[in-house]
C-alpha cells in the first residue's frame, strides 16, 4: 500500500482545483456542478463547499447523478442504485462533472449520456481528483485533475473520506 495523497495534500489539491475552476470563468450564474454517485459526491461536496466560500454570497447549483441505468455493463450483474438529485434543468448551463478517480473513462461516458436527460448543456467539463493515466478504454480526458498517476491494471486506487472511512487520504493498493 502506497500513499498518493495525505490528508493535508488532499486539502491543498481540492483548494487548487477550486481555484482553477474559478479562474476559468467570470460569471457563475450558469455554473452547475454535478457529482457522480456513489463515490464522486464526497469530492463534489468538498468542491461545492469550497467554491461557495470563495464566491459568496453567490450560490452555485449542485446536483448528484447516478449513472447505473446508463452503464454499458448493466446486464452483466446488478449494480447498487443510488439517488439522482438534479431538480433543475441544465439547458444552456456550463456543467462540471465531478468524480474521484478517472480510470477507463466508461463511467464518464455513461454520465454524459445520463446528463442529457436533464437538458442540453452549453458545455460539459470533467474534474477528477485522481487521473489514472494510460488506462483509458474510451477517448475521454479530464479538464481538471488533482493528481495524475501511472498505474497498472492490477492496482487499485482508493480514496478515503472522513465521513465514510474515518480518515482522509488517497492510497494505491
Amino acid at each position: 500500500m502506497k500513499t498518493i495523497l495525505t490528508e493535508e495534500q488532499l486539502d491543498i489539491t481540492i483548494l487548487r482545483l477550486c481555484h482553477q475552476l474559478l479562474e476559468n470563468r467570470l460569471e457563475f450564474d450558469d455554473l452547475v456542478i454535478v457529482g457522480i454517485q456513489p463515490r464522486g459526491i464526497f469530492f463534489s461536496d468538498r468542491v461545492v463547499t469550497q467554491i461557495n466560500q470563495q464566491i459568496s454570497p453567490k450560490k452555485i447549483t449542485y446536483g448528484k447523478l447516478d449513472i447505473t441505468f446508463y452503464r454499458d455493463d448493466v446486464r452483466q450483474g446488478l449494480h447498487t442504485l443510488n439517488q439522482t438529485d438534479i431538480p433543475f434543468s441544465i439547458e444552456n448551463k456550463s456543467v462540471i462533472l465531478v468524480d474521484d478517480v478517472l480510470y477507463t473513462g466508461r463511467t464518464v461516458r455513461a454520465a454524459m449520456d445520463a446528463l442529457l436527460a436533464f437538458g442540453r448543456p452549453a458545455k460539459v467539463e470533467l474534474c477528477v481528483l485522481i487521473d489514472r493515466r494510460f488506462s483509458r478504454e474510451v477517448p475521454i480526458q479530464a479538464d481538471y485533475a488533482g493528481k495524475s498517476i501511472d498505474t497498472i491494471i492490477t492496482q487499485k486506487v482508493k480514496v478515503l473520506w472522513k465521513e465514510r472511512d474515518g480518515k482522509e487520504e488517497v492510497v494505491l493498493l
Partner: peptide, 8 residues
C-alpha cells in the same frame, strides 16, 4: 425527469 427514458 424531462426525458423519462433510460437505455438500460
Amino acid at each position: 425527469r424531462p426525458i423519462k427514458k433510460v437505455p438500460t
